[in-house]
């Protein structure tokens, strides 16, 4: 199969939005290409038109603004790993980035691409979900912000319209009273697609009582999910072995994973329970 592909390479954001509006629904956006080029090379998906946004330097910023970190859509994993502000205000995003592919992929793959691609196994996604991030979407009609936890509507489906470009991710900074962790379970350390991935953040009040907790899981449902029943159970509770046990069983019941080539439903439940237990026991 050979197909003809038309490629647009806009030089500025307004220009990109115009092209996107004009070619709405027909053209596929190309950022770092670490997903799209694989689809193309393996002929899983061959677009007829591509909008290459790699040249849009205005989407490469990591900005520290009051209580949020703003990451442009084209920020790569390597940039995240090296960023002092990410290390300070959302260290688990850097941890997650280190587990994505290997250095070749980290140098090219973008955070915006991970979100827009929308794989339930996307490793940055549970972090964004646990941090209640926001997604910034732009089109010729204007710019809007959507809560990351309301971004996906189903398997690889999102509220992003055909004429919209994901321009930035806004991540509320971790506060000094908060603790967060990222866990990924796969077959090997590098280049492995997750069997279960978890991002979790908690704020504690003395003595060892959970004020609020955000638990997010990837690879266990058609989209990244929050374990809201388990969160509700833990809220306001003083940590004890009994509470940890209850939370562990609750999360195992709450999630509805499937069996696939990477793992089984049972394994995913047990691992999710174990990861939560590990986090709570570390507090």
């Amino acid at each position: 199969m050979i197909s003809q592909i038309r490629v647009h390479s806009p030089r500025t954001l307004p220009n990109a939005l115009e092209v996107l509006q004009e070619r709405s629904g027909r053209a596929r956006i190309l950022a770092g290409g670490t997903d799209l080029m694989v689809y193309l090379n393996t002929r899983v998906y061959v677009p007829t038109e591509v909008i290459n946004i790699w040249g849009l330097d205005e989407l490469r910023h990591v900005r520290d603004e009051d209580d949020v970190l703003i990451l442009g859509a084209l920020v790569t994993y390597s940039q995240i790993i090296r960023s002092p502000v990410v290390a300070r205000f959302c260290p688990i995003l850097a941890e997650a980035s280190k587990t994505i592919g290997a250095v070749q992929v980290q140098n090219r793959g973008t955070l915006g691409g991970n979100v827009a691609n929308g794989s339930p196994a996307g490793d940055a996604l549970p972090v964004l979900s646990a941090f209640d991030a926001e997604v910034e979407l732009a089109s010729t009609r204007g710019t809007r912000r959507v809560a990351f936890n309301q971004f996906y509507t189903g398997y690889r489906q999102s509220v992003m319209e055909a004429d919209e470009l994901l321009t930035a991710i806004r991540v509320p900074k971790q506060r000094p009273d908060e603790r967060a962790a990222f866990y990924k379970v796969g077959t090997r350390r590098a280049q492995a697609i997750s069997k279960v991935v978890m991002g979790v953040k908690v704020s504690l009040v003395e003595p060892a009582t959970i004020e609020t907790i955000q638990i997010s899981l990837g690879s266990v449902a058609p989209t990244v999910i929050r374990a809201s029943e388990t969160e509700a159970l833990l809220q306001g509770k003083a940590l004890s072995p009994e509470v940890v046990d209850m939370a562990r069983s609750r999360i195992m019941d709450e999630i509805q994973p499937i069996s696939d080539i990477r793992s089984t439903e049972h394994y995913r439940r047990v691992v999710s329970g174990n990861l939560l237990e590990r986090f709570l026991s570390s507090l």
């Binding site: 003809q4 038309r6 390479s9 115009e18």
Partner: peptide, 24 residues
Amino acid sequence: RSGNQVATGYCTRSADADIIGTLM
């Protein structure tokens, strides 16, 4: 250097011997 640049061509890997279409 400014404005949108458009190029058309065939997606290719070594296996696709015939490369026709607009080159850039």
